[in-house]
């Protein structure tokens, strides 16, 4: 328990360093673009594949489960949209990114720690925490909500494709369901969740890497810790945000 509080305290101290005044804005701007490409663009294909399949599976499951003369067919489109917007595209994509991006950040920064690259930056007078972590945080907080929107779109298209290809329902009914009782705030809700989860993934994995000690084995352990701690924290905040922003 003491270790947990120690880690939380160190995490907030690190965040204090991360959000202190940057050395030169232009350098950070360049690094943010680099990180958007490295962490964001490189996650598009994975997000697209998973979202398309999940959208298709959700539509298929709904069609099987809601097979009743008393339930209108457009409910399949409605349910698919709700699943994608409210939960899948923000939370599940965040969990997937916690694995991909989180382990990447923890191992990158952890390797820099054990090979003294972080010490070298500190000796130069660079705020290493801010220089290494802030661009990653900003890049993911900007990009993950966009990725969430993209995932919603691809998932819904996946559902439409399965409806069209298998003939389990009329594609027109599916589209009608997509617009049924649509609450625009649910998109805002998904975007806010995406941004919060992006911050959690990046900051926790950067924290795990930044305080890695020892050798390459420790970098591996830091990477695993980052994924586990990031995933659990995402689930806790999913619950909190759902309660606060009930749609």
């Amino acid at each position: 328990m003491i270790k947990l509080f120690e880690n939380i305290g160190r995490y907030f101290m690190l965040m204090g360093k991360v959000f202190s005044r940057p050395e030169k804005i232009s350098i950070y701007r360049r690094r943010i673009w680099f990180e958007i490409e490295a962490l964001g663009f490189n996650s598009i294909s994975l997000t697209a594949i998973i979202s398309a399949f999940i959208g298709a599976v959700v539509a298929l499951q709904m069609a099987i489960t809601l097979e009743s003369p008393f339930i209108p067919q457009f409910m399949i489109g409605y349910a698919t949209r709700e699943v994608m917007v409210l939960e899948f595209s923000s939370t599940v994509v965040a969990l997937i990114l916690a694995g991909k991006v989180g382990s990447n950040i923890a191992s990158e920064i952890g390797t820099m720690r054990i090979t003294e690259q972080i010490d070298a930056l500190e000796i130069m007078g660079v705020n290493s925490a801010s220089y290494l972590i802030l661009p990653k945080v900003v890049a993911t907080v900007i990009f993950v909500p966009l990725l969430t929107l993209f995932s919603i779109f691809v998932g819904i298209v996946g559902g439409y494709a399965i409806a069209y290809l298998t003939g389990i329902m009329l594609p027109g009914d599916y589209v009608e369901g997509l617009f049924y009782c649509f609450e625009p705030f649910s998109i805002t809700y998904a975007l806010v969740k995406g941004a919060v989860f992006a911050f959690i993934i990046t900051s926790i994995s950067a924290y795990c890497g930044y305080y890695a000690k020892g050798n390459s084995l420790e970098v591996g352990r830091a990477s695993t810790r980052a994924v586990v701690a990031g995933s659990i924290t995402i689930m806790i905040f999913d619950l909190i945000l759902t309660q606060i922003m009930r749609v």
Binding site: E23, I27, T115, E116, Q117, D119, A120, I123, M124
Partner: peptide, 28 residues
Amino acid sequence: DIGMIFQVGALLDSSTVRENVRLPLDLF
């Protein structure tokens, strides 16, 4: 005002030689 040479070099892996040497000039 301090320069330091580390045992393992501690060059930034993701930067070229030129970018590594140039970094302090960019920042300060």
